[in-house]
Design a protein around this nucleic acid. Structure first.
Length: 479
RNA sequence: GGCCCCAUGGUCAAGCGGUUAAGACAUCGCCCUUUCACGGCGGUAACUCGGGUUCGAGUCCCGAUGGGGUCACCA
């Protein structure tokens, strides 16, 4: 059995998109599930599209997500170089060889002539004009330095087909395929040529890529066949959509992997979630670590219809990871976000973090959970109303002054004694615990939602501020 | 527009000729509870449409509709 070799071949043109990352992830998972190798190759044959720093982003993102490649530009391997711009001589050699084999030909047509072949809609195909040039004419033009490209010689009749592992049988008529440029006039190959040469030379057994290549694959097969090379197994992946109509893309300002990390989504959750977009495990277990994914991944679970990126589900998964991680781990991840809160530095860090760990799905939500400590605004008296607690503003009018008195006499201002005092007060007033606690919590925080109960919030605020807030709330009620 | 591909709840999805059509997220309700959250329990909600094939179709075939992709010296 031949060793499985898959590759991820991004073009360094900017950020790492979720869709790209998923393609990389699947390539990695498939290789690992088969005990094979995963290779990173950089497709930078279009110098115009090169973006400074993009290469580093690719390395960093894969590393950060835990997707480790066995061979790549920065770590080497036996099939290098792994950067296409460094392989120019190789492509030229193979392009010339393909010409000899009849699978391609030199083309000297200039832009004007190419354009003249197109109709008013810009649609039109190359007419194989240069295919019919004589050997002598070609040699002469070459010798006199006329700019040229090398085009693929696609048969005018017949069709090409292959069996994609996710889409099944795919067939395209050759008459619908143009004689595309393989080697550009600047000497660099196009994707259409480079991917074939490299995949073969690098021993790639399974080509995993986006479904946009579904209908151009037959022309790649033509080249494999012309060279006498074994065709790889194809696995095309459906796109990840932003909504029913638009693909998820950085161009639309959609979240990239690093944007999500910056927002405080847990990395493991992001990887876990994108694995689930287009693939489903045999079991019903959806929450899986990378290791578990490596173990359970199988091509049979791949889906062929586009899937929409659903942030709420990612949030949920992220929250699951937060809730199960150790406090120490949570603390190290959460600290940078806690520091953005107005409350940072004024309260015991650990106390704040403990309160918030089970209440947050995404780290960036932390400040909003605790900012009430420093932001105390006017209280909407409707907040005192709670059907289940049977409390309302009227009840609050009696509770608040009494609570202030009870708390004032407390020598130990901590959760337990505060709670006891408030419960005792409820009994004294002939009220339910909830009536007192609800009103006090509202008065103390001015918010419906807080990361804990009345006594916890009171302890956090400290006696002095509790008393002043209680007084303010009471006064507001009497107006 | 030509060609290729796709089509199960709001979303992700299981299903591969016979099921009460799973599960998850979201949503709603109940329970737990000192708020919120967590947790537990339960509810609402789907096979795009029309023809076939078959004893029987979400599952197979054809068509329509809708959607996506592709038609570059971009990948």
């Amino acid at each position: 059995m031949k060793e499985v070799r898959t590759r991820f071949a991004p073009s360094p043109t900017g950020y790492m998109h979720i869709g790209n990352l998923r393609t990389a992830l699947y390539g990695y998972l498939y290789a690992k599930s088969q005990g094979g190798k995963f290779i990173l190759r950089l497709e930078d044959t279009d110098s115009r599209r090169y973006v400074e720093g993009a290469v580093q982003i690719i390395y960093d993102t894969l590393k950060d997500a835990g997707i480790v490649y066995d061979e790549g530009p920065d770590i080497g391997g036996n099939y290098g170089p792994y950067i296409q711009s460094e392989r120019a001589a190789i492509y030229k050699e193979y392009a010339e060889k393909l010409v000899e084999l009849g699978g391609a030909y030199y083309c000297f047509c200039d832009k004007e002539r190419i354009d003249s072949l197109k109709d008013e809609n810009g649609v039109g195909r190359y007419d194989k004009h240069c295919l019919h040039l004589s050997k002598e004419e070609i040699a002469e033009k070459l010798a006199s330095g006329v700019p040229y490209v090398i085009r693929q010689n696609v048969p005018e009749e017949g069709s090409g087909s292959y069996d994609d592992l996710v889409y099944g049988h795919v067939s395209v008529d050759f008459k619908d395929i143009e004689d595309g440029v393989l080697l550009k006039s600047d000497g660099m190959p196009t994707y259409n040529f480079a991917n074939v040469v490299d995949d073969h030379l690098m021993g790639i057994t399974h080509v995993i890529r986006g479904s946009e290549y579904l209908s151009s694959t037959p022309k790649y097969n033509l080249m494999y066949d012309a060279f006498g090379w074994e065709r790889p197994v194809y696995i095309h992946l459906p796109p990840i959509m932003k909504n029913a109509h638009e693909k998820l893309s950085k161009r639309n300002g959609d979240a990239s992997y690093q944007d999500l990390v910056a927002k405080g989504y847990i990395k493991e959750a992001i990887v876990n979630y994108i694995a689930l977009l287009g693939w489903s495990p045999k079991s019903n277990q959806e929450k899986m670590t990378l290791r578990e994914l490596e173990e359970h991944f199988s091509l049979a679970g791949l889906n062929k219809s586009p899937s929409i990126f659903d942030e709420p589900k990612l949030r949920w998964l992220s929250g699951e990871y937060i809730r199960e991680m150790s406090f120490e781990q949570f603390k190290s991840l959460a600290l940078p976000f806690l520091q953005k809160s107005k409350a940072y530095g004024k309260y015991e860090e650990d106390k704040l973090l403990h309160l918030v760990q089970s209440r947050v799905d995404v780290l960036e939500d932390i400040p909003s959970k605790i900012d009430f400590l420093e932001e105390y605004g006017p209280i909407d008296s409707a907040l005192y109303f709670n059907k289940k607690m049977k409390s309302d503003a009227e009840i609050a009018k009696t509770v608040l002054p009494a609570a202030a008195k009870a708390l004032e006499n407390l020598s130990e201002f901590e959760n337990a004694p505060i709670y006891q005092a408030l419960v005792a007060l409820a009994q004294e007033l002939g009220m339910k615990n909830g009536q007192v606690l609800w009103c006090v919590r509202i008065a103390l925080t001015a918010r419906e939602n807080t990361p804990g109960g009345a006594s916890e919030m009171a302890e956090l605020l400290g006696k002095e501020r509790c008393l002043s807030r209680l007084a303010a709330a009471e006064q507001a009620l009497s107006v």
